[in-house]
Amino acid sequence: MTDRREIPDTPLFDRDVNRQGYALNKFAMSLGRPDNRAAYKADEDAYLARFGLGPATTAAVKARDYAEMVRLGGNLFFILKISAVDPTPITAIGAAQVGMDHDRFLKERLGK
């Protein structure tokens, strides 16, 4: 997008990211259904293959690399559904975004 003021270190979910991350977010959205969660858990590769993610995105999902998923157009509200299948605290996902150790993130960013 062009006519918007950039805010440092703050990605906004706009048309470019929508295009880039659509398949990833669609896969993640599908995990809102129990039958899909079961199919995903049963055979991750086969399930991911349905969504045409491309190699980089597939690798990021399989590695549970949430920072990379966001970089590739994932939106946290959708990809959080992956963390429901494979439990990961949202604060750990936050720490990964920053590239910070989880404990340090809790202390420095959240004051915990």
Binding site: I7, T10, G94, Q97, V98, L110
Partner: peptide, 11 residues
């Protein structure tokens, strides 16, 4: 709150 990007955890 901010959940995404390097400013994640912003309060």
């Amino acid at each position: 709150h901010q959940l995404q990007g390097r400013r994640a955890g912003f309060l």
